[in-house]
């Protein structure tokens, strides 16, 4: 479960979200499995969104003389 003990990378979170959607689409999943999968997927989704909305871009020119 992505319980945020360790921050997921965006790639991991996105892969988790895609996997959840894929498993859920498969036939023959029980309701129990589907619910778990759905919850995980939503968790991954939140994780992705958190990263995507973290717009703290820095653009800097390194000054060789100062260093």
């Amino acid at each position: 479960m992505p319980k945020q003990e360790k921050k997921l990378s965006f790639e991991e979170a996105l892969a988790g979200l895609e996997r959840s959607a894929e498993i859920l689409k498969k036939d023959g999943t029980t309701l129990e499995e589907a619910m778990q999968c759905f919850e995980k997927g939503v968790e991954y989704y939140r994780c992705c969104n958190e990263i995507l909305n973290d717009a703290k871009q820095k653009i800097e020119f390194y000054d060789k003389k100062e260093a």
Partner: peptide, 23 residues
């Protein structure tokens, strides 16, 4: 990032859609 946001939304929508259908 814009495209990624849209993609993540669509994945979430499909998650919800499939879940609703299952229910």
């Amino acid at each position: 990032i814009g495209a990624l946001k849209a993609y993540v939304e669509s994945e979430k929508d499909s998650l919800i859609h499939v879940m609703e259908r299952l229910i």
